[in-house]
Nucleic acid binder design. Structure first.
Length: 569
RNA sequence: GGCAGGGUAGCUCAGUGGUAGAGCAGCGGACUCAUAAGCCGUUGGUCGGGGGUUCAAAUCCCCCCCCUGCUACCA
């Protein structure tokens, strides 16, 4: 495998993150799969001085939101608003640094969606056709396949869903089910004819194939999965539904009043509408509402989409097809989809329980230990398992013992023996001192390349190895002894160690923004590490060091049992 | 069923042709600045199974087994 090297700066980078369904709180899997990697990637690029725009928003539409509202006797707006606020609190608490986290329930998004709809219609990529769908008369709503249950025609299993039988694995059509019943009302659905707009995906198969062939930097599973879909050929898909909650169809006519543009078509447009919303908002320092074009129209801009693997087709096939049909807008540069985070074996899905909810986590623990764990064992190449045992171990053995303790021990010896100031180093350094400094400086290229390639696990490893090397260096030169016999020798050791730590603080900052900012201050630096640039900021002799405080808390073994108990409930 | 990803030390995982690796756990040791952290040494694997290509395979090819996900009107 070749070592990744960073691309030349400054770049224009759009960090586009999956739009969460606003029908429940966020859990660990969401953060691990999309939000955290996106944030790390964005922070790294900002540190390099690149022009970064990181956007996403709540998906306010879609059946689950409506269903939840009905269960509660509430409205979709109320449900979406509640979870939208919850998402914002999670991002704040975890340090997920969106430039804008909006929602699909905005006038701007409706306009952008309708503009794309009309352009695609005008260009012949949308057409109307009639189809038969199951209708729940009691609820007055057409049913997605998954909202129909019945007896499997192949194996006789009674709990088969409309799209698939969980018992025998057969792929089904909802109309094939025996004794079908609606999951919404338990009534028997009836077949009704209805007219919808279809997206002519079939027209894009070849163009998409040629485009994906060039994406050799994509993750293997993303690329192969996409090519596999294209090989089978694309089918046109209906993009409207008989609903009243969603973006209206921008056409005159009674028949369109009770229909809405469906979420899968509309949600991906959010990346574009959010970019436009940001540019026109006070959040944009330049005040130029046309600034969104830099990310969407410039050939040199990189648009990177952070999603979970279940979202791959929408970002490597459907959205690119829509963009091709619309014309003039950048196609995805990369789609580093993650695999799933499992919970000690079970998929971290909302539907199966055994989930760690972000509001609960943030009530009890700090953000950086979780950011560390989810990066160190990120589901980049295969599903990864989360366990509280692993959380505790990573925190206590790696963050506290290897990294936090390194900072703490060096600051403590230095302050105690050199009058609270950074001691001077000789003009000519010992070979091991030079080597260690060269190593941390070289890490900016290698670790940076890994961040850029979204190989975050590897990037973090690379930085932590330097921390290990610093611990070895300290033991080799034992400044706590030398300080009694050869103060210059100890002074060199501590001066070098402080500088290595300074480099590490910058290298680790994308993953550990909260504690790295603290460490930055402990080194006597001014301002924000985030603004210091992607290089080691020297710690100068004579700098006054503040009193050292531990960066991380050691966690008690008892939390494992406590948290596992909570999971089962 | 089809497609995709994965099966490497007790655990979590790196490693894509050239004498099996890391962290943790276990064992032994020297040190003591530090949140009893750090450092040195060490035990431990027929790299899912079988066959093939090669001077050489965890790494390439074929077959089989197992796990996970997707299979497009949930997104």
């Amino acid at each position: 495998m070749t070592t990744a090297t960073p691309s030349p700066s400054p770049e224009t980078v759009l960090v586009a993150v999956a739009w969460p369904y606003a029908n429940n709180h966020m859990h660990l899997g969401h953060v691990a799969g999309a939000y955290l990697p996106a944030d790390i990637y964005a922070r790294y690029h900002r540190m390099r001085g690149d022009r970064v725009l990181m956007v996403s928003g709540s998906d306010s539409h879609g059946t689950p939101v409506t269903v939840r509202a009905e269960e509660e006797g509430s409205t979709p707006e109320a449900v979406f608003q509640r979870y939208h606020q919850s998402f914002l609190a999670t991002f704040e608490g975890m340090g997920i640094s969106f430039d804008l986290f909006t929602s699909t329930d905005t006038e701007n998004h409706r306009q952008v969606t309708q503009e794309i709809f009309l352009r695609l219609l005008e260009r012949g990529y949308l057409y109307e056709a009639e189809q038969e769908q199951l209708f729940d008369a009691k609820m007055g709503r057409f049913l997605p396949d998954r909202y129909v249950e019945g007896t499997c025609p192949k194996c006789g299993f009674e709990g088969a869903r409309g799209d698939q039988c969980d018992n025998c694995g057969s792929t089904l059509d909802a109309v094939e089910l025996k004794n079908p019943r609606s999951r919404l009302s338990d009534s028997t659905p009836e077949l009704r004819r209805t007219t919808h707009f279809f997206l002519k995906l079939s027209a894009f198969t070849e163009a998409l194939q040629q485009w994906v062939e060039t994406k050799e930097h994509w993750r293997l599973n993303v690329r192969n999965f996409t090519l596999g879909m294209l090989r089978e050929g694309l089918k046109d898909r209906a993009i409207t539904r008989d609903l009243t909650w969603g973006v209206p169809i921008p056409l005159e006519g009674e028949q369109y009043q009770s229909k809405r543009i469906y979420v899968w078509f509309e949600a991906v447009i959010g990346y574009l509408s959010a970019s436009k919303e940001w540019a026109a908002s006070p959040l944009n320092p330049s005040g130029n509402a046309e600034d969104w074009r830099a990310w969407w129209e410039g050939d040199t801009a990189k648009t990177v989409y952070f999603i979970g693997k279940d979202n791959i087709p929408f970002h490597t096939v459907i959205w690119p097809a829509m963009l091709m049909g619309f014309g003039g807008l950048n196609l995805p540069y990369d789609v580093p989809a993650n695999q799933y985070l499992t919970m000690s074996g079970a998929k971290a899905s909302k539907s199966r329980g055994g989930v760690v909810w972000m509001p609960d986590y943030l009530e009890r623990y700090d953000p950086d230990p979780l950011r560390y764990l989810l990066t160190a064992s990120a589901p980049e190449t295969s599903d990864a398992d989360f366990s509280w045992t692993e959380f505790l171990r990573r925190n206590n053995d790696e963050l506290v013992a290897r990294w936090g303790n390194l900072v703490n021990r060096v600051l403590t010896i230095t302050r105690r023996n050199y009058d609270g100031r950074v001691p001077d180093a000789p003009a000519t350094l010992a070979p091991e001192s030079r080597e260690l400094l060269e190593r941390v400086d070289a890490a900016f290229a290698s670790v940076g390349g890994d961040y850029d390639a979204v190989q975050l696990r590897r990037a973090l490893n690379g930085a932590m190895e330097v921390a290990s090397a610093a611990n070895q260096y300290l033991d080799q030169r034992a400044p706590w002894q030398a300080v009694k016999t050869d103060r210059d020798h100890a002074a060199e050791t501590l001066h070098v160690a402080l500088n290595v730590i300074s480099g590490l603080v910058t290298l680790l900052n994308p993953v550990l923004p909260f504690t790295c900012q603290q460490a930055w201050k402990l080194l006597g630096h001014e301002g924000d590490v985030q603004a210091a640039g992607w290089r080691r900021t020297p710690v100068l002799a004579g700098t006054v060091l503040p009193e050292a405080v531990p960066l991380f808390k050691k966690l008690d073994d008892a939390i494992v049992a406590e948290e596992e108990e909570r999971l089962v409930r």
